[in-house]
Design a protein around this nucleic acid. Structure first.
Length: 277
DNA sequence: GTCCATGTTCTTTA
DNA sequence: CTAAAGAACATGGA
């Protein structure tokens, strides 16, 4: 479910509720979602204030008043919900913490994740992660060119690699490659400078539009208030196998690259490196 | 029962 | 050394 636009949407819905709030009661209902596993999360959170919440890559990062940080990663099926503390817990709720801002009622933040590919990571005071690539929305073409240099992998696989760019996932890589007119099986080192520049613009354009539409709801993604996104309604290629391309009418194809379903238009995205715009 | 899934990481293969 | 392929993780929906 969650790629950069969905995670950003969740963060946007959390900001007004948790910024400056004090953490009251914390419950870790499944301790195996925590890394490091032995960390005492309850002791670290209880009584702390949340200075701010922000997104880095696909992570929801909480910065605490004592300069410690932790983050929640939603994995494939994770959700954050803002609820009344009295609301019944749904199945697969793994973490809850009550927060309170001055003169406002207590609300409860919940992390729910059936498949448990997501989890909670305690960062402490070490805030940087050298394994994460740059944020796509801040990316300059020259920076993208640097990140793409020296690999012959398929561009589809390269863009999914969080060390290269942090935040894209299967939906938005497919959408960005269509927007840029680049075939997903193009070898990364075959991209011309003009194509890299076009790709850089395409990535930002797709992500900005997706954030504006509050992400894509294919199955069950909702933001922290339970609101679904609607960007899936204007996908050009993702999940549109055998439907006509909105640009040219060609039927969208689905292939598998690196074990991931990949959608593209064989007319708008030519295999040969002939496109220069 | 089967296949598939918006993610990440590890192992095997080439 | 690089990177592709495959599996693993765990659950639920079609």
């Amino acid at each position: 479910m969650p790629e950069l636009p969905e995670v950003q949407t969740v963060v946007n819905s959390l900001v007004p509720v948790v910024t400056g709030a004090t953490i009251r009661r914390v419950r870790l209902l499944r301790s195996d979602i925590l890394t490091p596993a032995k960390h005492d999360l309850i002791a670290s959170l209880t009584g702390q204030t949340i200075q701010r919440v922000f997104r880095r890559a696909k992570r929801i990062v909480f910065a605490l008043g004592d300069r410690n940080q932790f983050y929640i990663h939603l994995g494939m099926s994770g959700r954050i919900r803002i609820e009344s503390p009295a609301a019944p817990l749904v199945k697969h709720t793994h973490l809850t913490f009550d927060v309170r801002r001055a003169r406002e009622p207590v609300v409860q933040i919940r992390f729910i994740d059936p498949r448990r590919f997501g989890g909670v990571w305690w960062l402490g005071k070490t805030h940087d992660d050298p394994s994460l690539g740059p944020e796509p929305l801040d990316l300059k073409p020259s920076q993208l060119a640097t990140q793409l240099r020296g690999t012959r992998r398929f561009i589809k696989s390269t863009l999914l690699d969080q060390r290269v760019i942090a935040g894209l996932g299967n939906i938005y890589v497919d959408e960005a490659l269509h927007e840029a007119g680049i075939h997903p099986l193009t070898r990364t080192d075959e991209l011309k400078p003009a194509q890299v520049k076009h790709l850089c613009r395409a990535i930002k354009k797709v992500l900005r539009r997706a954030i504006k539409h509050r992400g894509s709801t294919l199955r069950d993604y909702v933001d922290a208030n339970g609101t679904p996104g609607d960007f899936q309604k204007i996908h050009r290629v993702y999940d549109r196998k055998d439907q006509p391309c909105l640009c040219c009418g060609e039927l969208i194809r689905r292939i598998v690259i690196g074990g991931r379903s990949t959608h593209f238009c064989s007319n708008c995205q030519k295999r040969k490196a002939s496109r220069t715009m």
